[in-house]
Computed example of a mutant assay.
Amino acid sequence: MFTRLLALFCLLLVVTSSAYPASAASGFREMTIPGTASDHPLHLSLWYPTGADTEPTRLGETPAFVGLPVIRDADPAPGPHPLVILSHGYGGSWRNLAWLASELVDRGYVVAAPDHPGTTTLDMGPADTVTLWKRPTDISRAIDAVLGDTTLTGGIAANRIAAIGHSLGGWTVVELAGGRFDAEGVMTDCLAQFGALYCKIFSALGVGRDPAATAALGADLSDSRLGAIVTLDLGPGRGFTPQSLAAVQIPLLVLSAGENIDPQTAQRAGIAATNKDSFYLAGHLPSATTQFTLVAGALHFSFMQLCKPGAAALIEEEAPGESIVCRDAAGANRQSIHRQVSDMTLAFLARALATK
């Protein structure tokens, strides 16, 4: 799936300028976190409140996808601000949840979104793809970078930090909450447990390829600075041990697509049964601190950015089979789905971080 989708993004990844009311715009900047002997360089996108009145541009505007107003490199409004880190799905990028970043900034949050090397749209190098355990550390490194430089954001409230992830990004943020992934168990009779598609994805991600990778994936990758977690139709979730999920101590909001894509379409598109993963997660997390909701009308890609009218046909022409990224359930409207998700997320974070 994502090989074809990469070609699509390369064709359509054109940012254009357009006037928006200045009051509707977020500050926005991009930076690179330097690599180390053990960690890759990390591209990081930042959205933040600003009082600047410079004419904004549309970020991420393409022939297929709707862009959002930002003022590049604007001076940040004084903090301290709460911080949310976003984690994209397999083959995605920071652009996928930019719509949610904009909503969060409107409520005073700073938002940071790393591109995960090896599993991001323009960087699917096999050497990084198979180091899945580095995804959670990407988030921790992003927190380090943002906390370490107040000039980037106007200052962060270090006791009010949350993380939100879609699809494989949901797996990533559960790791940060204390979930422990049992790679050996997942790969034992994988076909019977998960089905051929999931096993193919696991293989591409290097799950269970050797004892060192299994140990790295099973290690404690949590980050105690996080006070709340939101998952958006996560996958894989069923590889987390029930014991580790039961021991998670911070609040989680588990949002799942309320509708399932038919199996044949899912198989062609390379989408696993993530609905089962959300149910599994919610069933093993502490009930007192977990909120689980099926999002009506949502399919797996409904949590991504808005598609323009005619986008599905354009995408199908450029990358046959990939128009599924613009599909929602019959009769559903993605803008309305986004409103549901945004409202639930903002209310949850307000409660979870209120006393932090």
Rank of each mutant, 00 (worst) to 15 (best):
F2I: 15
R4Q: 11
F9D: 09
L11G: 04
V14C: 11
T16C: 10
S17I: 13
S17L: 02
A24G: 09
R29H: 14
I33P: 05
D39A: 15
D39C: 02
L46E: 05
Y48D: 13
Y48T: 02
Y48R: 10
P49R: 15
T50Q: 12
G51L: 08
D53I: 02
E55G: 06
P56D: 07
T57H: 15
R58G: 15
P63T: 07
P63A: 14
G67E: 09
P69A: 15
V70R: 05
V70P: 01
A74E: 05
A74G: 07
P76H: 04
P82L: 00
V84C: 13
G89Q: 02
G91W: 08
R95C: 08
L97S: 03
A98W: 02
A101E: 07
V105H: 02
R107K: 02
R107A: 08
P117V: 01
P117W: 03
T121P: 05
T121W: 01
L132A: 12
S140A: 15
I143N: 00
T150L: 10
T150R: 08
I156S: 02
R160S: 06
A163R: 09
G170E: 04
T172I: 12
V173L: 10
V174F: 09
D182S: 14
A183R: 02
V186M: 11
M187I: 15
A192N: 13
C199S: 09
F202I: 12
V207Y: 00
A215S: 04
L217D: 02
G218K: 03
D233R: 06
F240Q: 00
T241M: 02
S244P: 09
L245V: 14
A246K: 12
Q249K: 15
G258M: 10
P263H: 11
A266G: 11
Q267T: 14
I271S: 05
L285T: 01
A288S: 11
T290H: 04
L299T: 10
F303V: 06
P309Y: 12
P309A: 05
A311V: 10
A311Y: 01
L314R: 13
E318H: 13
A319V: 09
G321Q: 14
C326W: 08
D328Q: 13
A330N: 12
A332Q: 12
Q335E: 08
S342L: 03
D343L: 13
M344V: 03
A350W: 00
R351E: 05
L353P: 03
K356Q: 13
